[in-house]
Amino acid sequence: MTKDIKDLVKGFINGDQEAFAELVRRYKRKVYSLAFRMLGNHADADEVTQETFVRLYEQRENLRTVGYFTGFLLRIATNYTIDLLRKRNRHHLSLDDETEMTLPLQLELSMGAAGPDKEIEDDELGVMIAQAIDRLPPKQRMTLILHDVEGFDKTEVAIAMGCPEATVRSNLHVARAKMRKWLGKKLK
């Protein structure tokens, strides 16, 4: 019953609508979660999720020549998320801007809706970490969220972000170092 991604992608490219629906089913939570963590509210996360899959559908022909479905999908999601982020924060010119950004922090609100499989021992630390993530500049934040929070590997993150793996590594390094600095004693 459970088809592997490779077969689903093949079916999808060849026009199988059910394969597409199954891909949406399998990846919707990842895309939503990524967008929510970046943008901090449901309306934007919903927009990113819908638009990502609609664009995936439009660009399915390109999947014939692309090796990674996940990277391809994440790339669309990441691009759209960063576009939205830019629109929401017009005064921030550069995505690499070291200025700490503050978004309406609604991650806390989502804490209550966490699934049973994702309990964290220390709720207070969880909240502090969520706030610290929001202080990171967008590209470092995106890298940290994709790799450390959502658990994608460096190759997938590199494709998603459109950069070499070395850049993923250094963004991750810097992001984690900042987090450690901000969280200080809490991690001891």
């Binding site: 949406v24 929510f36 819908q50 609609v54 989502s110 804490m111 994702k118 970490i129």
Partner: peptide
Amino acid sequence: LVTTLRGLPTPDPGESYWSGLEQTILEK
């Protein structure tokens, strides 16, 4: 840090959102 990050709760708008999503996307 890494363990806590990995264990952060997943934002979840609830089943009523998820159930209609495939259809909405497919139509769009």
